[in-house]
């Protein structure tokens, strides 16, 4: 009973911690950490969550998630008022953001439909090809995407009178979105839709033999992941005050994969843990080693985590729990 209460206390503390962080941090560092580390980690974490959702529960590793996030970001940037250059404009954030989410969901469905018959390395390659195809198109198209310069001045809305450019407002808004999406994923995977998705992961042939259309289910799962990535893409675009092709390029695509693997593909929380580790190293690489050697550094971290725990930081946690459980039982 006491053990159960202790477990609930730990869970409650972990849930409360992100909300209290800006207040716990030393005042002179709070804004820097809130904006540059935690806020950014949450945004990347949401995009990584879309990949983790597909990988953990469907068994699909998609490299198109950053491109799908970019689809939402570009849609907002193209249609919202005030963006520079003005491509279409005329919409408020209240209209442009849902449009961005719809575009990302549609792109997710499209990627799912194109890749519907592929698995494993072939799925990886086809989603990478789609991501790079869109990246090249965006980079070379001036009329709609302003080419390699991208679209700037996507400053974000005012939310209940609070300005999105305020680091704390952005942080709490991103945290609320991340919480909703994370909770949504945990809920969804216990519904009939989620159970069938896990069935496809374990045995697609059997799922078909039970009366389900595996192809349609896969496409819908990619649509759900597209929506999640889209939410991350909108936040990333507002965070960066704009979007350019570099944010959906090969480097950004691989970064999302690295975050997901570092965090662990065994549980959706791995996406946020991986994103936080990645952002911490990205932010402090210059202090730790050399800014220009960030890729070497994160590569070494990646290697170390994968070698020690092939299932990422989530796996480290599970191993520790098992170890402590064994010691507890031995005592």
């Amino acid at each position: 009973m006491a053990e159960r209460a202790a477990r609930w206390l730990i869970v409650a503390a972990l849930l409360a911690l992100p909300w209290l962080l800006p207040m716990i941090l030393p005042p002179h560092q709070a804004q820097f950490w809130t904006a540059n580390v935690f806020g950014r980690a949450i945004v990347f974490g949401i995009i990584a969550l879309s990949l983790t959702f597909l990988a953990t529960y469907g068994g699909f590793i998609s490299l198109a998630q950053m491109m799908i996030a970019g689809t939402a970001g570009y849609t907002v940037a193209i249609f919202v008022d005030g963006a520079v250059p003005a491509i279409v404009g005329g919409l408020s954030y209240a209209a442009a953001v849902p449009l961005g989410l719809a575009a990302a969901t549609l792109m997710g469905l499209l990627v799912g439909a194109i890749a519907v018959r592929t698995r494993d390395i072939y799925l990886l390659m086809i989603t990478l090809a789609l991501a790079m195809g869109v990246f090249r198109f965006v980079e070379t198209n001036i009329a709609w995407f302003n080419g390699y310069e991208g679209i700037r001045n996507v400053v974000g809305p005012r939310l209940f009178g609070y300005d999105f450019r305020n680091a704390y407002v952005f942080y709490y808004a991103a945290l609320a979105v991340a919480g909703l999406l994370y909770g949504g994923v945990l809920y969804l995977v216990r519904t009939p839709f989620g159970l069938v998705l896990q069935g496809i992961r374990d045995n697609a042939r059997r799922v078909a033999a039970l009366g389900y259309s595996v192809a349609l289910h896969r496409i819908l799962a990619f649509g759900v992941a597209g929506f999640i990535a889209g939410a991350g893409g909108v936040l990333a675009t507002i965070y960066n005050i704009g979007i350019s092709p570099g944010s959906i390029g090969l480097g950004a695509t691989v970064n999302i994969l690295i975050m997901s693997v570092i965090g662990g593909l065994g549980h959706p929380i791995g996406a946020f843990i991986g994103a936080l580790i990645f952002v911490v190293f990205d932010t402090f690489a210059a202090d730790l080693y050399d800014r220009d050697r960030f890729n070497t550094l994160i590569g070494l971290v990646f290697l170390a985590i994968v070698l020690v725990s092939p299932d990422g930081m989530v796996g480290v946690g599970a191993r520790l729990r098992r170890l402590l459980g064994v010691r507890h039982a031995a005592a």
């Binding site: 216990r190 033999a209 289910h217």
Partner: peptide
């Protein structure tokens, strides 16, 4: 050919839902 990551009850539940309408419900 079973769903190793799911429980016995979940395997049978997914099997029962397969031929029913609303088999893809997103409500628990």
């Amino acid at each position: 050919l079973l769903f190793n990551g799911l429980t016995v009850e979940q395997n049978l539940f997914v099997a029962v839902r397969g031929v029913q309408p609303h088999r893809w419900s997103v409500l628990r």
